[in-house]
Write a protein that binds this DNA or RNA. Structure first.
Lengths: 261, 261
DNA sequence: CGTGTTCTTGAAACTTGTCAAAGTTAGTGG
DNA sequence: CCACTAACTTTGACAAGTTTCAAGAACACG
């Protein structure tokens, strides 16, 4: 039950066997935690003791500057997992906060190692999961560096649409967007006030409707154009590829680290 | 010889045995390429057929927008390696260009797999290398999203200083900076003209001198403060940590992919 | 000793940020 | 179920930071 979002996600990359799925389910069932909105799941500077799998709800990864400025690195959606290498760190380099009430499964390092050594398919799938996270981070770098405020917002709205659609969280062209404008501001690197104006501009252009937490896209193609958006960086259509007899996919990771010293 | 920068880099994370070093050397010697300034080593959209190891010179990873805008994702320095998972991709999601004349070693997927299966130390070291790359990308996200033009430049200058110092490419507080102001602009997300003004501001504040390609930092501490810079994200001081008997560092990766289909 | 790239400068326009206050929504407790 | 508070959204006016355009100066290379 709990592991469904992750299994669904991993299956996007590699065809898993029933055994694989069982392994994932066990790992995700072991320790489950609920965290309320505005609370941190994991905090910058702390020692990472496990990998967090977001089972349900919205989260956000962020880094803070000493003077209080804050940058959202990415929004975390159901099925999202920390990058595996994070376990190597002595101190986490960013925080993960809950936006809505969320459910997270904690996957300990040794447990993760088990998965990847037991199944090369899982190892590959997890590598894919990491890869997608990094591709996303690169695209955000571009978004922040090159796009105007309007383009950034349009781009973000498109990204969230595609990511949510991939996990069945859209209704037609609509989805629930629990992030506040202040959070959108921290994600796009523009001020909260300007986020507000930018959203109004998108409304005026009849590209979207946003009332309360309800986002509706009216013209996806136009919105993508406005945001210079191209979904390929999300790698949502990998599905089949890895299924066929891929020759020498070496085991892959199993990046656990010493357990508590 | 060729592999020195990478060996040096990997040794920062994990103590390697002579055997490990030999393996790395062999892998890096196999195919070596020289690329001239302004040429691409690898281009967005192409199928990645190997991992590139920058042996000598400066490069930059970048993504382009359809309308010609360009964002530098990071500067590549000697010893830098592509992330291992990049081999999974059908199409590279960014390009790598030479800034100076450079030497790159091409490491094929199977070769990489060999390294990681043969030596758990190498596997861990390579995982660390990936991790550092991602941590750097996250920090750039913050840089672009939250810092002012002056802060971004200061931050970038500090970052380059520390990275170059780690590979012995600094002379006291000075280093050669082959990137043009236009490249710095694409890296910091500000216009080339404003980069120029910003550099002058840093000069006026007596924080740096930049004549031709020669960068000198006059007051590193003040520069770090100006850029809200904190070197910890670079993970330059991992050295010792992994040396001691780390219990259960599971093998780790070996992320190769099907060789040419 | 050109010729093309890179750096520098100034002035004007524009995007975005800041401040402050009012309006709205949502959640909590009486 | 309403009242009340706190959080969030919206607005306006203004300030500031940054971009753009255009042109000249300084380099660097063949």
């Amino acid at each position: 039950m709990n592991a469904q979002p992750l299994i669904r996600r991993l299956s996007r990359y590699v065809a898993l066997t029933p055994d694989d799925e069982r392994l994932v389910e066990e790992a995700a069932r072991e320790r489950v935690r609920r965290v309320g909105p505005r609370e941190d799941v994991m905090r910058e500077g702390e020692r990472p003791r496990c990998l967090y799998l977001l089972v349900d709800g919205w989260g956000m990864r962020y880094k803070s500057l000493e003077d209080g400025r804050r940058q959202v690195l990415t929004f975390a959606l159901p099925g999202d997992l920390c990058e595996q290498t994070a376990l190597l760190l002595e101190h986490a380099d960013h925080s993960l906060a809950a936006i809505t009430p969320i459910t997270v499964a904690e996957i300990a390092g040794p447990r993760l190692a088990e998965l990847t050594t037991a199944s090369p398919r899982l190892a590959t799938a997890l590598a894919w999961s990491d890869l997608c996270g990094h591709a996303l981070q690169r695209e955000w770098t571009v978004n922040l560096g090159q796009r105007t405020a309007l383009e950034r917002m349009a781009h973000l709205i498109c990204e969230l649409y595609y990511r949510l659609r991939a996990i069945g969280h859209t209704h037609g062209l609509a989805y629930e967007l629990p992030a506040t404008q202040a959070m959108l501001a921290d994600a796009t690197g523009i001020s909260a006030v300007h986020v507000n104006r930018t959203l109004q501009e998108l409304r005026a252009a009849e590209l979207i409707t946003l009332r309360g937490r309800h986002m509706t896209i009216h013209d996806l193609e136009a919105l993508e154009t406005a945001g210079l958006f191209n979904a390929s960086y999300l790698h949502l259509d990998q599905s089949a590829r890895s299924t066929s007899g891929q020759a020498d996919v070496t085991p892959i990771p199993a990046r656990s680290v010493a357990t508590e010293p």
